[in-house]
Design a protein around this nucleic acid. Structure first.
Lengths: 334, 334
DNA sequence: AATCCGATTGGAAACGTTTCCAACTTCGCC
DNA sequence: GGCGAAGTTGGAAACGTTTCCAATCGGATT
């Protein structure tokens, strides 16, 4: 908190050479060995290190990328953030975390803030989307990569997953186990994940023969909402299988099943989605559809890297396939 | 990705006034109403928004704060990050996440990187500390707030917690329940948390009468390491209480107990530490010592705010008390 | 030995903003 | 009606960096 930082000009004076040469010498391009030596020495004596802001202004590059999600604490996003950071940091990029807020409007505002030029790009996973948001993304002055919804037609880079197909995989898995009375526990339908998972469940139960199909919508994607919704659902009928739209809802569902004196997976098999650590650690460990959060984060970061380095790189869409991780909650091996 | 951003100079030309006046008008200080009106209109037409880099260069202020931890995915750090973001964002500060790496040396390097001036301050929670790191923190060109170890004597701002005392609370809780054969599951002793928790356990078991006291060190603070270490520990003796140094180790311990056909909490009561969501959701829900991650993050952010706004604000130390959250794993209410 | 070419160096401008300072206008008051 | 003060405005510098361009230097080639 005490020392004051040395500037390039001070290094130049100390080395007795021009500002231009000093910059070149440190940057390693087009300077004689003697010059490099001399400037290096001066820089070392002064403990010089280049000012990020000055450089950014000149280079028009911040070496920063924003990662924006609704809830920074959500395990899925945490996993993505970690992956993004792991990919970007070695390339000299810093990661700025931001919150989109719950609505499409607040997300739009955040994207608009890119106009102040504090990052070279943004990776965003909007909870809700509308046309204004899409437009704002298209007009953004820096590359934007969207995680969570395919936007091929709009010239926007995106990394998506087939969560609908993932729900299908869970449904077929339960059917293959001989379960015939399946209940679905979804989150709010006006969210992107809620909507697509609903589509997936409807499609899967249409093409597969079940004796009973029912569902209930939880207030949000949490354990307590899942518990409550599962109670309601279980009060309406008897099920030997429950498909939950994410791991937390699945845990709530397991609670509700146990409250009735039934056991998982013997009486009721339960599947989750997102393959979170919390589900892996839970007992019984959760059979869960992995949507590859880490892989999606990594893919988004890689796209961002290309876009940031090569400004007229074309937009790019990637889809990461879902993968069913079978564990104890449907009778799989530990 | 298309439009090119407008500059203040362009706004000035459009409004037909000087650059200086334009800046003042937008900034709201010392400009006539007519001028403000005129400039505002021009700015709106051009969709102007101030460039963060240019402003930073002039103001010598980035409106960014770094948050650096060893593992961004660790629930405790996630909670802190969320709290920090919640405090700083409303004041216009962005949060940059960084990784300290495992060692004191890599952490020192990260602190040194503050010399490039890309943030107004750093909140850091070092896994390991040494004198060089301390010195680097003292010499940093921007405020640094340390979470995790009291550094009162060194003029460094810090937010710490009494994890030793927290372990003591867990030990006394178990004793009060009538448990007399207690095992301790700790993580690596050369980490800051490992060392202080060890102190806490030693102190508590010295002043309280137990029939049997033993312990085992896990390779790291994870479920699998906890499971393994707990197996070793349980093979050495019979315990009716296990104190774990964090929630993940505690879950590993519960697994190990169950493997022996024993149940939690009836046969063995288990306590964790950190009060993570994963522990709250687990069954049985974990009795855990909260070290107030959210509160610590919030406190650190508040200190940072003061330090960043008022540069010769004095260093500040805060301690957040531990709190025992009694739940099912020691027989508490659900 | 004169010339040319490549390698190296320094001067200066530019990135976009804020603010100091001086100059100007306007108004009130004597 | 003139003078001063208060209120507005514009010019210019500054923050720290990189890079274009011109100038200089050395050596090699004719």
């Amino acid at each position: 908190m005490t020392s004051t930082r040395a500037t390039l000009l001070q290094v130049a004076e100390r080395a007795g050479v021009s500002l231009a040469s000093t910059s070149r010498a440190l940057h390693g391009t087009g300077a004689s060995p003697a010059m490099v030596e001399r400037v290096r020495a001066a820089a070392a004596e002064l403990g010089y290190s280049a000012d990020a802001i000055g450089r950014s202004l000149r280079l028009k590059k911040t070496f920063q990328v924003a990662f924006a999600v609704a809830d920074i604490g959500n395990p899925v996003y945490v996993e993505m953030m970690r992956a993004i950071h792991e990919v970007l940091a070695p390339h000299g990029y810093r990661v700025v975390v931001m919150s989109t807020g719950d609505t499409a409007t607040s997300t739009t505002e955040l994207v608009r803030s890119l106009n102040s030029g504090f990052v070279d790009g943004m990776i965003v996973s909007p909870l809700r989307t509308d046309d204004r948001l899409i437009r704002e993304i298209q007009q953004a002055p820096v590359p934007v990569v969207v995680i969570g919804r395919a936007l091929d037609d709009r010239g926007i880079s995106s990394v998506s997953t087939d969560s609908a197909g993932g729900i299908g995989a869970a449904v077929r898995h339960l059917h293959a186990l001989g379960r015939r009375r399946v209940g679905f526990l979804n989150g709010p339908l006006d969210t992107t994940p809620g909507a697509s998972r609903q589509r997936g469940f409807d499609a899967a139960t249409k093409t597969t023969a079940f004796d009973d199909v029912d569902q209930e919508i939880a207030g949000d994607f949490t354990v307590s909402a899942g518990l409550e919704a599962a109670r309601t659902l279980l009060a309406r009928g008897e099920f030997d299988a429950l498909v939950a739209a994410n791991d937390l809802l699945a845990i709530g569902a397991i609670r509700a099943v146990r409250e009735l004196g039934l056991s998982v997976p013997e009486d009721v098999a339960v599947t989750g989605m997102d393959d979170t650590e919390i589900g892996r650690v839970f007992q019984p460990s959760l059979t869960s559809v992995s949507l590859g959060s880490t892989e999606r984060g990594r893919a988004a970061a890689r796209i961002m890297l290309q876009l940031a380095e090569d400004l007229d790189h074309a937009a790019q869409q990637i889809t990461v396939g879902p993968e069913l991780m079978v564990r104890e909650s449907t009778g799989g091996a530990r």
